[in-house]
Amino acid sequence: MTEVLKVRDLKKSYKRGFIPRSTLVLKGVNFSVPSGSITGFLGGNGAGKTTTMRCMLGLDFPDSGEVQFFGGPLNEASKRRIGFLPERPYFYEHLTGREFLQFYARLTSSWNKKILDSRIDDLLKRVDLLFAKDRPLRNYSKGMLQKIGVAQALIHDPELVILDEPMSGLDPDGRMYLSEIIIETAKRGPAVFFSSHLLHDMERLCERLVVLKDGLCIFEGTTEAILDRGGVEFEVTYLAGGQKNLRRITEHAQVQPILKKLINDGAEIVEVRRMRSSLEEIFVKMALKGGKK
């Protein structure tokens, strides 16, 4: 699998305060995003997710480090292959939905009007905003703005879609809808790299995860791998002496001997459940302890 994005030893500091003091926000971030994958970018508030994205995309200038898109540096050609939605964006309120997408499409591509119009209609249909295409953005709800924001990131058929907190502030319906858009986008071919605080959505959507803590990458790998870090537990429900009992087994090797013993003692096994820690539990543990790759 080829890598569409590779970040190596990215460092960034900001000067803040009346007497400027340098604060190191990114302390050497390393990760990569394979083509065609949905990769989640996880981290607490102030971990450096948004700063990493800004540095990657040339919006902020890193102190040092290397960012490669499609095997090369960020340039005009690679920018044509990237779609981006920033966190909590405000869009041009004076434009209608259609004009808004026309504007971004014309900045990136040179499609003729006919192709552009049909592309915009397709995309508006995909994000369920066709009904509001001629409405000014100032009359859009937050969920609608987030959807049109995703549409502007997709308008030029990018091969890598980067979304910064796309679910932020959306209601459950909006989150569900956006999740579907992300899955559908990835099915069409582009890699999707997005950050979110909503771990349940991350667990459900992402094949791969990159976890950032205090400006350092503390995990990079598949979602399965991070879930395995939490270990596996088994929960046995059995009937003994006319009563329903529950027993937790933390070691996999102990499952068979314990079950045998329960049966020998005359217990009736009702259910054996394999339990795994949720991403949220694992993330909290990692955030408290810090972790190693």
């Binding site: 005009e76 981006f84 405000y90 971004y104 900045l107």
Partner: peptide, 12 residues
């Protein structure tokens, strides 16, 4: 308003 972010990531 951060609109600049969606513009400067384009080939501009």
């Amino acid at each position: 308003k951060k609109t600049i972010m969606t513009i400067l990531v384009r080939p501009i």
